[in-house]
């Protein structure tokens, strides 16, 4: 496997496991771009990544579609952004949201497709394809080798015994 991968998520529960494992593997400075249609499960996945990254469960990680940015304080700062309402890189820069992609926290961005050019090379992109009501296909890719090993770990762990919810 290279620094890309495909994972079938057979239920929302498994999407949750995938997100928590991914969050646990995150390091300061990581950027994750989430793609996929409305209802694909981007916010649900972000919630699981945040939980895995150590964001306090008492802090609800809810949708930043209108506010554009929500900040959380976990093991490391967690920046949850949503480009749903934006129309390209100019919007992102005009609002100063690009700065959060270069901080020493974890940045998770929904609707990265709206402004893909603002993302650093080291970004992990996760595209969620809707298969049917409960199932999703997660396509992972990154230009950075730092994600290669982590994607392999993630795939192995996801195939192994279920962790505690």
């Amino acid at each position: 496997m290279s620094n890309s991968g495909k994972i079938i998520l057979t239920s929302p529960v498994q999407t949750g496991r995938f997100g928590r494992l991914l969050g646990a593997l995150c390091e300061p400075g990581d950027v994750i771009g989430l793609g996929g249609d409305l209802g694909a499960g981007k916010t649900a996945l972000t919630q699981a990544i945040a939980a895995g990254a150590g964001v306090d469960p008492a802090e609800y990680v809810n949708s930043p579609s209108f506010a554009l940015l929500h900040e959380y304080h976990g093991r490391i700062p967690f920046y949850h952004m949503d480009f749903y309402r934006l129309h390209g890189a100019d919007d992102v820069v005009a609002l100063g949201l690009d700065e959060y992609l270069y901080r020493s926290g974890i940045a998770v961005v929904e609707w990265y497709e709206r402004a893909e050019s603002v993302f650093p090379d080291s970004t992990l992109f996760v595209d969620l394809d809707i298969v049917d009501a409960g199932r999703r296909f997660a396509r992972l890719r990154s230009g950075a080798l730092s994600w290669k090993q982590r994607i392999e770990q993630l795939t192995d762990r996801l195939a192994g015994t279920p962790d505690k919810p």
Partner: peptide, 18 residues
Amino acid sequence: GRTRDDAAGEAFDKVARL
């Protein structure tokens, strides 16, 4: 109490878009 995911207005907006 507060929303754990989408706000109600956001749900209206996104369903209209869908």
